[in-house]
Design a protein around this nucleic acid. Sequence first.
DNA 1: CACCGTTTGTAAAACGTTTTAATAATCATA
DNA 2: TATGATTATTAAAACGTTTTACAAACGGTG
Lengths: 350, 350
Amino acid sequence: MQDQEEKRFSAAPATLREVAQLASVSVATASNALNSPDRVSAELRGRVLRAVEQLGYVPHAAAQSLRRSRGKLVALMVPNLRNPFFVELVDAVERLVFARGYSLLLYSSGEDAEAEIRHLNLLRSYRIDGLILAPAGRREPSHSASLAALKAPVVLVDRTLDGFGFDTVVLDNHRAGQLAGEHLVGLGHRRIGVILGTSSLSAGRERLLGFKEALVASGVVFDSSLLREVGLRDSRAYDAAIDLFMQKPAPTAIFAGHSLVLLGVMRALAERRLRCPEDVSTIAVDDFPWAAAMTPRLTVIAQPVAEMAAASVDLLFGRIEGEAAGPGRRATLPPSLIVRESTARAPKVA
Amino acid sequence: MQDQEEKRFSAAPATLREVAQLASVSVATASNALNSPDRVSAELRGRVLRAVEQLGYVPHAAAQSLRRSRGKLVALMVPNLRNPFFVELVDAVERLVFARGYSLLLYSSGEDAEAEIRHLNLLRSYRIDGLILAPAGRREPSHSASLAALKAPVVLVDRTLDGFGFDTVVLDNHRAGQLAGEHLVGLGHRRIGVILGTSSLSAGRERLLGFKEALVASGVVFDSSLLREVGLRDSRAYDAAIDLFMQKPAPTAIFAGHSLVLLGVMRALAERRLRCPEDVSTIAVDDFPWAAAMTPRLTVIAQPVAEMAAASVDLLFGRIEGEAAGPGRRATLPPSLIVRESTARAPKVA
DNA sequence: CACCGTTTGTAAAACGTTTTAATAATCATA
DNA sequence: TATGATTATTAAAACGTTTTACAAACGGTG
C-alpha cells in the first residue's frame, strides 16, 4: 500500500493524456468521462475512472482555468486581521467556499485604501470567479476602475460602497445602536460616552443614529460633547476614553463602536482604576471568544458573523453560477444583545 | 480621466496579442519586453510598455502558470483561526508573501487531520509554488502521500512532522516551559497546575519538559497529579481547571499550554469566584492583543510570531527560488516572558 | 436493404502565455 | 566586398485542458 502510494505520486503529476492512454481512449473522451459522464458509455467511463485512480490524476487548475474561464478561485479581502470580527468572517467564509470546491485567496488591506487597490490590481491576474470585500475606508476614485477591471461579481460585506450596485451584506447597524441605547438607558444611565471607530463611516453613522433614537424615545437627551470618533488604532480609543473620563460629570457608561475600540476603553479603565461595571458600564458591538472570559464578562451587541458569511457566499455564488442577475441585493442581518456583566445600574451619584 | 479609465477596463481583459498588435511587434517581443527587457531594444520596449499602459494589460496568471510551471501562488494551512497565534501568523505571512508579489491561498483544517488531507489534495490542482503548514495533529500515514504529491517545498511551522526532512520553524518550547517554571517558583509557588493542549503533541511535551526542569533546578518537586492534558476545545480546559481547583491543597498557580487553554482557565476562575492573582496566579504561552486589556493584565510567555512568520517565508522562498537545497533546516526561535499582573507571590496559606 | 435519427467516440482548435530555434539585421574584420 | 560574429526580432511549438465539429456505429423504419 505504502509502496503503491509511493509509485502513484512520485512521478511528475499525471496528465490527462496519460490517463487517456492508459484507458485506451482519446483525451476528449477522458475529459468527458470526468466532466459530463452522461456523454460517455459506462464501459469507457469505468476505464477512465480506473486510470485516474491508478495514476493519481488531478486536473491542472491553471489549464482548466485557461480553457474555461473559471478558476474555482474566490478572493476575500478584509481590512485587517486584528479585529476579531474579520477573523471570524475569514474562518467562516473559508469553510463555506471550500465546501463548494473552491479555494480562497486571502488579502488583508491593512485599512489602507492604497494597499487595497494594489491588491485588487494584483488580483486581476488571477481571473478570480468572485470577490468578497470588506472595503477599507471610503470609496476612492480608483476603486471603481480596479473593481470593474476584475470582471467578476463582488459582494460587499460589513461596509458599503455606494454607486456600484454590488450585492451587500451588512449588520442592521441602526438596530445595533438602538439595542445599546435601550439597554443603557434601561439601566438608568443618562450620561453615556460614545466612541466610534471612524473607519467604517456608514456603519458608525448608522449605529450612532440608532443609539440617539433610543435615547430620545426614552426622553433622554444625547450629549454630543460625549461623542468621540477615533481611527482604527486602539491607542486613539484609549486616549478618547481617558479624555471622556476627565469630563465633569464623568459618563457612567461607554458605548464602543467595535471591539478594537473597546480594547482601548478597557485599558483606560484599568489605568484610571475605574471599576467596571460599578463605576462605569461598557457595551460594544462585536462578540468574540474572549468577551466571556474577561472580568467582568462583557456585555455586547453580537453580530451574526456566521450568517453574514453565509449570506455573502450565497450571494456571491448566486452571481457566479449565474442564476442571479440584476441590481445589487442587500442583506441586512439583525444584531443581538448579549447581557453579561460589564453593564449595571447607573451609580446614584450621577 | 474617469472616462479613460472606463475605456481602459471596460472591454474584456486585454491579451498580450493585442498589446503586441498595438505596438506593432510580435507577441514574442512583447513578452520579452516584459520579462527580459535586456533582450529587446529600448525603442521597442518603450512601444510595448506604452501599449501595456494604454490597454491596462495584466498577464493571465493561469496561462503563465501553465507555460512556466510556477503560479506565484503560495498556500498557508493552519489548524484553526480561533487561536490568536495562528491569526497573527496568517496576518504576517500574508503581508510577506504579498510583498514578494505572490498571493496566498488560505486553508483552515479545523484541527482535523482528515480535513487537512482533503485540503492538501484539492491543493494539488493549483500546482502551488510552496506551502507553509501548521499541521493538525500527528503524522497520518496518508500525510506523506498527499504532501509528497504537492511536488512543492513545504515548511512546517509551530508543529513538527518527523521523517519528512521539511524545513521547520518552531518556538523553543523547552525554554518556554522553563521560563514559566522559573517565574512561578521565583514567586514562591510550589503547587502548580499544568494544563496542556494535547493537540500540538511535540510542543506540549517540550514545554512540559522545560517546566519540570525549572522546578527541579530549584529543588521543587513536580506533582504529576496536577497535570492535565486536554483537547482543543476550551470547554475541556475549563473542566480540567475546575477539577484542579478541587484538589486539596489546591494549586496556587496554573501554567496553561496556550491561550485557548487559558481561556477555559479564566472562565473556571470566574466561576469559582477565585481572584487572580490573589488566590491563584496564571501564566500561559501566547501573547495576544487582549492579554493586556484583561483584568488582571495577563502575564504570558510570548512567541515571536512576526519572526516566525518571516523565518517561514524566508525558508520557503529559499526553496522556491532554488537557492537552497539539501536537508531540512530548523529555525528555533526564543520565547520571552512578559510579566503583567496575573502572577503574584504565592499566598502564605499554601 | 437503404435511410435516418441517435448515440458514442475522436481529431483538432482554442485558451494566453513563454521559450526554442530559426531568421534578419547590424557591424566589425579580413 | 564578402565573411563571420553578434544582436534583435519573430514564427511556431508547447504547456494541459475543454469544446466544437465531425465521423462512425448502431437500431429501428419504411
